[in-house]
Amino acid sequence: MNWGSFSAFIHMGGYAFYVWSSFGVSFALLGMEIWLLSKRRRTLLKRLGQIQRLNASKGSR
């Protein structure tokens, strides 16, 4: 174990700003990619579903 206490872990030997910014931003970006993609999927399914229902109702007339 490297760290004597939780505050020592947070302090990162004086490099807290650089280390936590690097890891924080990296994982925030990966999370954002997942979120944006799932949003894109929901929108796409909704839009294509609407078009399909529209076509189906036209066809039955």
């Binding site: 490297n2 760290w3 030997g13 004086g14 890891f23």
Partner: peptide, 24 residues
């Protein structure tokens, strides 16, 4: 991440800043 922060030792030259290597 566990290995990066809790198992890997402090670098002799760069201190803790080197831990950025694990994502970089």
């Amino acid at each position: 991440l566990y290995i990066s922060f809790f198992v890997a030792p402090t670098d002799a030259q760069q201190g803790e800043a080197y831990r950025i290597i694990f994502i970089h």
